[in-house]
Every structure is written in structure tokens, then in C-alpha cells.
Nucleic acid binder design. Structure first.
Length: 928
RNA sequence: GCUCGAGUGGUGGAAUUGGUAGACACGUUGGACUUAAAAUCCAAUGUGACCAUUGCGGUCGUGCGGGUUCAAGUCCCGCCUCGAGUACCA
């Protein structure tokens, strides 16, 4: 029988589903392995060949681990909330739930036909009330928690309330916004609203007026990681800064733990690096500057307290709270104008005009605490309100931004560091600030003569003695804005009483997303949920109208998979203690700063609550590379309807146009299909080369508009899922970006048929026999077993596929049809090509699935050689090969090499200076 | 600007981590089989007008220039190019 992949694949997909072959059960005593894919957002466009790349790799690994005797958890689900379905709802009125359901069905069908070994009984969807109940539940826990810096963990807010009532907040060391100290008596005298207001500063989920990334086109706020280059990640719309009352998560409390945790997990350095950058830890000092004629002080953060003597002015962010009180009457109007202008600039403008120096003098002066100099206080938008204290001491001699500012406004520039051996320069002649990472202090009073390193320590010590500052650490990481003014997301389990937010009782969960008449904001600009009828509690208190962001539902989905149908709790302790953490997580690197930080934070919080037993959720993580599109082009002679083949285009003035890759085979255009493609090409004429129209090509992002999208369905129709799986792996290293090119798929398809022909001849006769294998056949098999095991363990799937090809080529050459060999090969191949191997397994006479059969282990005895073909080099250049017994002593090898016939022409007239013999590897003879 | 990747035939890529560069596959060319096509099989395929040219060979060759080494795609120093991320972070 011929290799009929169509019926084979359908048969086994049904078998797996029907028999629940991949169902995972909590089985204490059996070793577990948790393989997770980043779950997809089910978009309307369906899957293209880039999506399954990571799924295929993880599936191969999951199947491999099952063969190795592990109890494998390999689930899949959907990140079902998201903007596209809601944008579609706004345009068409179709409820996002309907769109999402439809898209999920399509995704499921596409996923099923690739033959993944998912346990679909564990599927989760973030938009399912049974699931988001627990997202809401976690939010309530965050709302009811505060971060105790002394214990370095989250704790219940009730403990804090008890402490306030007993001792006030004097002894509390919490992650919170700066607050006045109050006594117990004071606390007890506050009204409930006042107490709630104070507690809001401590909660891990808190409401606050915040400058946010407001995207008018989407009508919502976006998190920092959802904004790329001043535009929204989804849709590319402009983003503005706007002050709004928003829910935030106090992720900053976990900055240090998020940083430290990176050392305990097996992620790539690149990924750890981007997390480190996103967290952005910097060590330095906080220093207070007195203001001449005012009682207030300006607090700044600096990483270079050693350069304090060089601070010749100060700059406050336009949003800084002291600006109004500091500005002198003469400067009032100018400063107000400047602040207004700066605040109204879009993020995009700020970014594109980085070089433009702007600012305004407030009229006031601060006192440099070390030099005693009076220095002017300016405001400028190069100082960011969100970082440090929103104020800086400017050291123009050694900071290029401060330098540009000082030059522009004619402010003094003082050099305080000089490179060892260099002379102090004349700052008036400088083009830029002077690099001061290393050097010796000058013009700096008691610091003079110290190295930069010494001076940093000495200056901090001094300001601590003077009680005007202290050593501190700053993080770039900001608290995560958690409100979205959208419909299609989780409702907050929050209601308002006297304007203060309260959490719903857990028994009220899930708080279901209500129906609305339109998916748009109200006339008053309130979010869509404000349109819902009866959007209030039983007692009539209004419910929160914002919804949660996309990352809410995706931050802990891996935990729900452990126990997805639990109605009593998020997941049972038993399930968590068995499955613990994700052993292997595969997904795209676009989540490096978003999902992967939020998930780690969320997990650490649940760890603090004692709910999860592992502090880090993802032990090993691999980023699969992107598959890029390979676009094809035709060349139209300008102003005509004539198209010239690629090689001839230089003779004309042409315009390159994208052409649908489905009409192009091996760069040759199907001209008939092309003329039928679009009406405008109906009368197209072609100038051919050698009778063909050759297209040009380019590697670009895969997108509809470039007509270069390859979706898996067509390929599966033509070649089958096993071929697709092998080909996606064969394309190149998993982690590398690579262009899609259908040409190579034939080779993989040929390989599978060649494998099939080891079992059947052309007339469909079974060739299998029970003869004893020869040493040579055993060697081919065991060489392959060794290589394939080694390659799977290091996630080198492309070289694994080529090992299979070599093996099948060699067995074909040997005309080997022996059961003992082919049975082992079949098990070995089954993680890669599960359908064909199940079929062969059955043909071999086995019943049931191949999927838990013990994976072959190689035996070194079969690989042992009794002779080695040594490459013999002269001065490092390989000249000939020499076959020698494997256990020949070194001296003998040397002699054999020198005496070899082929060696003589290289030795002629030369002196042998040295012979290097690496036994089993190489012989190198140095002559001269 | 900063951070991280990556540069190997016509193409995707391999190289046991310092030891035969180009595995495996695509493509191309030629051939076998066939009425023909498909499928299958076999062979050739980095470059060059530098030596030899009757063949075997030799020389050069992993982005560029140096270096270390018996030996470098791999290690070190200095560049170039491309890609990704990030962006006034004090």
C-alpha cells in the first residue's frame, strides 16, 4: 500500500481523541514533566505556518518525555480576551464572544490536524466565567494585601489594620507611596473613608491618579509594554499622556525578587537581559537640596554622588509638584506656558524630538549641600516625572544631556573628574561632556585626589553624616496600570461606597460580564460597562466600569491547567504540589517584557500567600524564532500592462509588485493563474526568459498585504501533517528567525516515503523480515539513536531530522527490512512524525498507541570501531586519510603516518619538526 | 546612542565546542526507466584562468584586518554590515 497520509492521519487523530491517549492525571509517585506553550490569541486570520513552530517543538519534546516514562502535562487553551474582537464588535455589532467562539473553533480544527498531543480536557479560556472567576479572585487577594519589606513578602491587609489600631504606622516598613506618620490614636479617630484612603496607599492593587498612556483611537489606556515607539502595539495608533484614576498593581514591590529570581532559572541570557533592563536597577544615593528662601527641599536621586561638586544647576520635571511654589512672580507666566506646552506634547513628539533642548528657569535657587554654591532651578521635559523623584542635580561636565542643556542656556560647566594622566580641560571648549566612569576627582573639596570609586563611597558617607541623604537603589520598573476602558475583558470585582472602592465577597464570584447595547464609551466618556443595566451590587452600590487588561488572564493560566475543573478553589494544593512548575515553556520573545514579568510577579504573590510551592513559574524557557515570509515579485514596465521576467528587468524601467506566493513555484510564475488573479491583470502580457516568467523574491514579515502568507492547511492537504511537522523542524534552529520557503518540503516528504518503502515494496508487499541484523545495520541504528537522543535533549530538532534522513538513506542502501532494526527506528521517529509511526507500529503487530513505548537507548558496543580513518595533515592542512587500528599506540601511529605512501611527497626535502597525534581524532605533521 | 543576536556555496542550514569546512535537504545540470507524465534511481555541482592540463593534484576560500596555536568558522584584539529590543532612567 502506498503511503496514504490522509487516511492515516485522520485515523490516528481520531484514535488519540477517542481513547484520550494524552490525558494527564495527577499521579504522585510517577515523575512529572510539564510542557507548556504560550497560549494563542485566536485571531480571525487563523494560523499561519509561523504559529505552530513552537507547538511542534514542544510536542516533540512532550512525546519524547512520555516515551521516557514521564507523566507529561501538555495542555492548550486560549487567550480569548483581546482588542481585535472588540474592534470588530464596534464596527459590526457582533458580540466579541461570538467572534471569539468562531475563531477558537477554527484554531482548534487547525491545531487538531497537526497532530498535537494536547490534553484537551484541560483547555482553559480566559473569557470563560469559570476561569476568570479566579482572575477576579486573585485581584481581590491583591487588593487585600500589602507588601511587608521587613519580611520581604506580601501579607494580609487585616494585619496592617490591626497594627495601625495598636501602634500607628511608625513601625511599619511597607512598599507604599510616601505617607505621614500617624499614631494609633490618630488612626482610630479617622473616619472610615479616611482609613480606606490611607489603606489604598498600601494595597498591592490600588486606585490612583496616574499619568497614563491614553490611546484615543482605541479609547483606552495602555500599559508601557503595549506601547512601541509612542504608538499602540495593536493598530499603531498615537498615544498621549493623560492623568486618570486607574487601578495599578504594585509590581515594584517585587523588583528585587524579580531580579534575583533570574539567577535561578534556565532562560537565555538575551531574555534575562531584557528583563534586567526592564527592571532597571541602579545603585546610588538620594540627596536633599535646600531651596534658598523656601522651607521645602528638593530630593534627587543620583548614581554619581561623587560628582556633587560639579552640580551647577537643578532640573525638575514639568509635572513636579514644587514647580508652582518655587516659581518667582517674574518667571510665573513663562514657566506656566512651558509646563502647559510640555504636558501637551504627545509621547511620539517627545521621542522624535529628543535632540531639541527645551526648558525654563523657575527664578529660584537651590544650595549645593557640599560646595555651598547657589545653583539655579530649571524645569525641562528631559527630566521624567516617573523616574526617581522627578528631579535631578545637573552635572553638565559629565553628563551629555546636562551638557547639551547647559550649553543651550549658557549655564556653568564644571569639570570634577579627570582621567588619570590627563590634564583638566577648559570646559568652554568642549563639544560634549567628559566620560567620567573612571578617573580622579578634582574641584571637589574633600574628594579631591580620590578615584571615582572611592569618591562615591566617601560622598555617600558624608551626606549620611550630614543627614541630608542616604544610600539607595532605584528601579526603572513602574507599577502596572491595570484598568482598561474597554468591554471585552474581566470585570473588576469591585464596587464603590461613598466613592471608596470595596472588594466583592468571594462568594459573589464570578462577576459576569454584562450585556451592553453598544461596545462604545458612553456620551460622558465612561467605559462601555457603564452602559450595562443593573450594573451594581444587590445593595445598590455601583460596580467598577473598567475592565482588566490582557495580561490579567494570561498571568497564571499555567496554574489553572494543573486543576482546571476545580470549582472550590483556584487549584488544589495536591495538584500544585505534584505539577509544581512549568519544566519547559516555549513561546515568542515578544513577551519578554510583558507577560513574562507579570507572570513571575503574579506567581511570587501567590507564593507569598502560600498557594504555590515554587517561587518561579517557568524553569526553562525557549523563545522560538519567527518564521518570516518569502515574498515574490513581478516586474511591470512602468505605464504598461507588460511584465518582464526578473533577469530582463534591468532593460526596462519597472515597478516591483507583490504577487501571491501560491501562484509561484520555485520562482516560476503561473502566468495563467496570474491573469485570472485580479481584473487589472486580465490582459497582462509577459516577457519570458527561457520560456518561463521568473519572479524576484525578498524576505519580509508574513502578512496578508504582502501576499506571502502560508497557512498550514494547504500544505497538510498536499503533504500531510507529519511532513509539515518535520519540515518546520528541518528549516533551521528553533530559536533562530528564518524565512519560510516551501521548496524544501519535498525533500522531507520524500524522506517519509523512503521510510515507508523500508516496509513495503512498490507492489505493496510487506518487506519486513525477522532476520538477525548485521553489525553494520546495528551500527547505523545505534548511531542514529545516540544522535537523536542527544539532539532532542538540546532542542536541536533540525539536526535530529537530518539524522533520520541519513539513517533511512543508509538502511535503504543496505536493503535492510529487518524488524529488529525498523521497530526501534519507528519508536525513535514517533515524536517527530506521530501518525505514520503509529500506523507502522500497528503494521508491526502491536496494539494500542506507540506513545508510551520505551524510547530506544543506544549501545556503545555497536558503535565501536576496530579501525579509525585518520585525517593526516601537514602544517594543519588535511592531505590524505589513513586507516589504522583503534588501539594503536601513539608512537606506532606516528610511524605509520610517516611511512605512508601518500606522505612521501609531503616529506620530500623537508624536515619533520613535530608530530601531533590526538588518538581517535587527527594526525598533524609539522614540516619545514 | 545603549543592550543583545547574527554574518559559512545559487538557497535553508551542518560542523561532536580548537582537530577532515560545506553533513542533511532544496535548486540546477546530465543520465536511467516511461508512448508520455508523475514517481523512483544514478552522477556532477564553493571559487578561480594561478600551476598543471594526460590525469592525479596544487593554490586560495567561513563579512574585513591583525593575533594566539602544531591546528581557528570556532579563541583574543580592532573594524564593517544586517537584524531585534530599548530609548532623555539622572
Amino acid at each position: 500500500m502506498a503511503y496514504d497520509f490522509n487516511s492515516i492521519e485522520k485515523k490516528w487523530q481520531q484514535y488519540w481523541a477517542h481513547n484520550k491517549v494524552f490525558k494527564a492525571e495527577t499521579a504522585p509517585g510517577k515523575p512529572k514533566y510539564y510542557v507548556l506553550d504560550m497560549f494563542p490569541y485566536p485571531s480571525g486570520a487563523g494560523l499561519h505556518v509561523g504559529h505552530p513552530l513552537g507547538y511542534i517543538a514542544s510536542d516533540i519534546y512532550a512525546r519524547f518525555k512520555r516515551h521516557k516514562g514521564f507523566n507529561v502535562l501538555h495542555p492548550m487553551g486560549y487567550d480569548a480576551y483581546g482588542l481585535p474582537a472588540e474592534q470588530y464588535a464596534i464596527q459590526t455589532g457582533t458580540h466579541p464572544e461570538v467572534t471569539t467562539e468562531k475563531n477558537i473553533k477554527r484554531y482548534r480544527r487547525q491545531l487538531d490536524q497537526i497532530g498535537f498531543s494536547f490534553d484537551w480536557d484541560r483547555e482553559v479560556r480566559t473569557s470563560d466565567p469559570d476561569y476568570y472567576k479566579w482572575t477576579q479572585w486573585t485581584f481581590i487577594q491583591l487588593f487585600n494585601s500589602w507588601y511587608d519589606k521587613s519580611a520581604d513578602k506580601a501579607r494580609a491587609i487585616d494585619l496592617l489594620i490591626g497594627e495601625f489600631a495598636k501602634n500607628g504606622n511608625g513601625e511599619v516598613n511597607a512598599a507604599c507611596d510616601g505617607l505621614e506618620v500617624f499614631s494609633a490614636d490618630r488612626w482610630n479617630s479617622y473616619t472610615e473613608a479616611e482609613q480606606q484612603n490611607i489603606l489604598m496607599n498600601y494595597r498591592l492593587a490600588y486606585l490612583k491618579d496616574t499619568v497614563v498612556n491614553w490611546c484615543p483611537a482605541l479609547g483606552t489606556v495602555l500599559a508601557n509594554d503595549e506601547v512601541k515607539e509612542g504608538l499602540s502595539e495593536r493598530g499603531g495608533h498615537p498615544v498621549e499622556r493623560k492623568l486618570m484614576k486607574q487601578w495599578l498593581l504594585r509590581i515594584t514591590a517585587y523588583s528585587q525578587r524579580l531580579l534575583d529570581g533570574l539567577d535561578t532559572i534556565d532562560w537565555t541570557d538575551a531574555l534575562k537581559e531584557s528583563q534586567k533592563n526592564w527592571i532597571g536597577r541602579s545603585e546610588g544615593a538620594s540627596v536633599n537640596f535646600d531651596i534658598k528662601g523656601h522651607n521645602e527641599i528638593i530630593e534627587v536621586f543620583t548614581t554619581r554622588p561623587d560628582t556633587l561638586f560639579g552640580a551647577s544647576f537643578m532640573v525638575l520635571a514639568p509635572e513636579h509638584e514644587l514647580i508652582t511654589s518655587l516659581t518667582t512672580p517674574q518667571q510665573k507666566e513663562k514657566v506656566e506656558d512651558y509646563v502647559k506646552w510640555a504636558k501637551n506634547r504627545s509621547e511620539r513628539e517627545r521621542m522624535t524630538e529628543v535632540k531639541k533642548v527645551t526648558g525654563m528657569f523657575t527664578g529660584s535657587y537651590a544650595v549645593n549641600p557640599l560646595s555651598g554654591n547657589e545653583i539655579p532651578i530649571w524645569t525641562a521635559d528631559y527630566v521624567l516625572a516617573g523616574y526617581g523623584t522627578g528631579a535631578i542635580m545637573a552635572v553638565p561636565g559629565h553628563d551629555s544631556r546636562d551638557f547639551a542643556f547647559a550649553r543651550h542656556f549658557g549655564l556653568p560647566i564644571i569639570q570634577v573628574v579627570v582621567g588619570s594622566g590627563d590634564e583638566a580641560g577648559d570646559t568652554a571648549t568642549w563639544d560634549d561632556s567628559y566620560d567620567s566612569k573612571e578617573g580622579v576627582m578634582i574641584n571637589s573639596g574633600f574628594l579631591n585626589g580620590m578615584s571615582v570609586k572611592e569618591a562615591i563611597q566617601a560622598s555617600i558617607q558624608k551626606i549620611e553624616e550630614m543627614e541630608i541623604g542616604y544610600r539607595t537603589i532605584n528601579y526603572r520598573l513602574r507599577d502596572a496600570i491595570f484598568s482598561r476602558q474597554r468591554y471585552w475583558g474581566e470585570p473588576f470585582p469591585i464596587y464603590y461606597k461613598d466613592g471608596m472602592p470595596y472588594a466583592l465577597d468571594e462568594s459573589e464570584l464570578p462577576l459576569k460580564l454584562p450585556p451592553v447595547d453598544k461596545f462604545l464609551p458612553t456620551e460622558d466618556g465612561d467605559p462601555p460597562l457603564a452602559r450595562a443595566e443593573n450594573w451594581h451590587t444587590k445593595d445598590g452600590y455601583p460596580l467598577e466600569t473598567n475592565t482588566m487588561p490582557g495580561f490579567a488572564g494570561s498571568s497564571a493560566y499555567y496554574l489553572r491547567y494543573m486543576d482546571p475543573h476545580n470549582e472550590e478553589e483556584y487549584f488544589s494544593k495536591e495538584a500544585n504540589e505534584y505539577w509544581r512548575d512549568v519544566d519547559l515553556y516555549i513561546g515568542g520573545d515578544e513577551h519578554a517584557a510583558g507577560h513574562l514579568i507579570y507572570s513571575r510577579f503574579w506567581n511570587k504573590f501567590l507564593y507569598d500567600l502560600g498557594m504555590v510551592c515554587e517561587e518561579e513559574p517557568f524553569r526553562k524557557l525557549i523563545n522560538q524564532g519567527k518564521i518570516q515570509g518569502r515574498s515574490s515579485f513581478v516586474y511591470r514596465i512602468k505605464g504598461t500592462n507588460t511584465f518582464v521576467s526578473k533577469g530582463l528587468r534591468k532593460d526596462h524601467e519597472t515597478q516591483a509588485l507583490h504577487v501571491d506566493i501560491n501562484m509561484v513555484d520555485n520562482d516560476i510564475l503561473d502566468t495563467e493563474a496570474f491573469t485570472n488573479w485580479l481584473p487589472e491583470y486580465k490582459n497582462a502580457e509577459f516577457v519570458l526568459e527561457d520560456g518561463h516568467y521568473y519572479c524576484g523574491h525578498e524576505v519580509e514579515k508574513m502578512s496578508k498585504s504582502k501576499h506571502n502568507v502560508q497557512n498550514p492547511d494547504a500544505l497538510i492537504d498536499k503533504y500531510g501533517a507529519d511532513t509539515l511537522r518535520l519540515y518546520e523542524m528541518f528549516l533551521g534552529p528553533l530559536e533562530q528567525d528564518k524565512p519560510w520557503d516551501t521548496n524544501g518540503i519535498e525533500g522531507v516528504f520524500r524522506f517519509l516515503r523512503k521510510y515507508w518503502r523500508l516496509f513495503f515494496d512498490e507492489d505493496d508487499n510487506l518487506l519486513l523480515n525477522d532476520e538477525n541484523p548485521t553489525d553494520e545495520e546495528l551500527k547505523v541504528l545505534h548511531k542514529t539513536i545516540k544522535k537523536v537522543n542527544f539532539d532532542i535533549e538540546r532542542f536541536s530538532f533540525n539536526t535530529g531530522v537530518s539524522a533520520f534522513m541519513i539513517c533511512v538513506n543508509e538502511l535503504s542502501d543496505l536493503k535492510c527490512h529487518k524488524r529488529e532494526i525498523l521497530e526501534q527506528l519507528t519508536i525513535l521517529l514517533s515524536p517527530y512524525a506521530p501518525h505514520i509511526t503509529e500506523e507502522i507500529w500497528q503494521i508491526l503487530g502491536h496494539s494500542g498507541s506507540i506513545s508510551t513505548t520505551a524510547y530506544p537507548v543506544h549501545n556503545e558496543d555497536y558503535l565501536a570501531e576496530n579501525s579509525i580513518e585518520y585525517p593526516v595533515s601537514f602544517n594543519g592542512k588535511m592531505r590524505f586519510r589513513l586507516k589504522l587500528p583503534v588501539d594503536l599506540p601513539k608512537a606506532e601511529i606516528e610511524r605509520a603516518a610517516l611511512e605512508a605512501e601518500e606522505a612521501q611527497r609531503w616529506l620530500e626535502g623537508k624536515t619533520v619538526r613535530k608530530i601531533i597525534v590526538v588518538p581517535g581524532r587527527i594526525i598533524n605533521i609539522v614540516v619545514g
